[in-house]
């Protein structure tokens, strides 16, 4: 009779210990430094298995979020692309994984915006792509954030 009671108490105690002895996760290092840029939007490309976050400086935010109708000089956009991976802690969710590349577009007072890409992992974006990539990056509509002026529908 005493055995189940002792076993019960023992399992209650060891149960809580077992919780703490689980495998420690290896958190992926944060390679990209946003340097104070803010998130404009997020784009998922399921075919490529990637997720990208578009960041912008104040001038870029003025265009994207604050409703400026035309691009101004010195806008800086950075599209940061990660490989998507399974979320270790929730089956049913994909999460950003390793950093693949960071593309930067800067507008100028005259002429075409500049474009460059820094590769970290994954395939290289070919040299013929800059104009197309610049257009793609500048055409991305901002995500709706509930706490700031927003005019995304003007740009769709």
């Amino acid at each position: 009779m005493r055995f189940p009671i002792i076993l019960f108490i023992a399992t209650m105690l060891t149960g809580s210990c077992m919780q703490q002895q689980k495998e420690k996760p290896a958190i992926r290092p944060y390679v990209f430094n946003d340097s104070g840029l803010k998130v404009i939007t997020t784009i998922i490309n399921e075919k490529a298995g990637t997720v990208s976050m578009l960041y912008g400086n104040k001038a870029a935010m003025d265009y994207q979020i604050n409703g400026f109708k035309a691009h101004q000089p010195n806008e800086m956009f950075q599209l940061v692309t990660f490989r998507e991976q399974d979320n270790k802690f929730w089956f049913g969710s994909y999460i950003n994984g390793e950093l693949l590349h960071v593309e930067t577009v800067k507008t100028q007072a005259a002429g075409q915006p500049t474009y460059n890409v820094q590769h970290y992992n994954g395939p290289t974006i070919s040299a013929a792509d800059p104009a197309r990539r610049t257009d793609f990056i500048l055409s991305l509509p901002p995500a709706f954030y509930p706490c700031e002026p927003h005019l995304s529908t003007d740009k769709l």
Binding site: P25, I27, N87, K88, W90, S93, G97
Partner: peptide
């Protein structure tokens, strides 16, 4: 992970 789900792991 201390109750937080969405941490990227390697």
């Amino acid at each position: 992970t201390g109750g937080i789900f969405d941490l990227p792991t390697s």
